[in-house]
């Protein structure tokens, strides 16, 4: 309602398109194969980067929580990665990576430090009294890991994975907007901006937001399913 009123007040589709024209634009897009293939292309690459960042972050977190030297080596690098703006990453990476694979690298770098930190701190969050109890009773390493070490870590890592998913998605699309690989959401967003197709730009933005929310809901659903199975 506010949007519609604002659009009417401005009276210029180039500055603020009305919700109706955005909806019309979206309706025109969703019936094309290009729309779905673009989403699939962007999503597959960004999710691949997300998975690589998640697996790498967990592996690195295990490594740094076990060896202080590894922590001393990787912690500053992770802080630097976390502090670097997405745009800087994209421009730097463009020198080495082809446009199509850029979103994979960008989303990996977004996810890696978040998941690393959650794993690193989560592994150190095990209750020392329970660890001592396990030592006294001679409970085996696998059981200690499963029942004492992993539960507190799991909560932290799952929270990080949820946050990282949104980051990866937004950063991945931002990377596509700069690198403009063909047949991706980022390319459509870029073209809409260049050709001043404001309803299309708003429609693609809505698609990005909606997809991000759906992916996060899916992750929450999957993690709850995993909890129930346990």
């Amino acid at each position: 309602m506010v949007w519609e009123l604002g659009s009417l007040a401005i009276g210029h589709e180039l500055l603020l398109p009305s919700p109706v024209s955005v909806a019309r634009s979206l309706a025109r897009m969703v019936v094309t194969g290009e729309f779905w293939s673009s989403i699939a292309r962007s999503m597959s690459r960004i999710l691949l980067g997300y998975a690589m960042g998640a697996v790498g972050g967990i592996a690195l977190g295990v490594l740094t929580s076990r060896w202080r030297a590894a922590a001393a080596f990787f912690a500053p690098a992770m802080s630097a990665v976390k502090a670097t703006p997405v745009a800087s990453f994209v421009i730097l990476l463009l020198a080495w990576i082809r446009g199509a694979n850029l979103s994979i690298a960008v989303s990996t770098l977004m996810v890696l430090p978040l998941v690393w930190q959650a794993t690193h701190t989560g592994l150190g969050a095990a209750d020392p009294q329970l660890l001592e109890m396990a030592r006294a009773f001679g409970i085996g390493r696998i059981k200690v890991l499963r029942y004492i070490v992993l539960p507190p870590m799991k909560q932290q890592v799952l929270a990080a994975l949820r946050t990282a998913l949104g980051f990866a998605w937004k950063a991945g699309v931002a990377g596509e907007v700069i690198a403009v690989p063909s047949g991706t959401i980022g390319m459509h967003l870029y073209n809409a901006k260049v050709y001043l197709e404001m309803p299309d730009m708003f429609a693609w933005t809505a698609v990005i937001v909606l997809t991000s929310v759906l992916l996060e809901k899916l992750l929450v659903f999957l993690s709850r399913g995993g909890e129930r199975k346990k």
């Binding site: 009294q129 329970l130 001592e132 109890m133 006294a136 009773f137 001679g138 029942y147 004492i148 539960p151």
Partner: peptide
């Protein structure tokens, strides 16, 4: 001994079990 059957001052039960 290598292992001890211990009732600690705190119960130290695993909360998820």
């Amino acid at each position: 001994p290598p292992t001890v059957s211990f009732v600690f001052q705190e119960n130290r039960l695993i909360p998820t079990l």
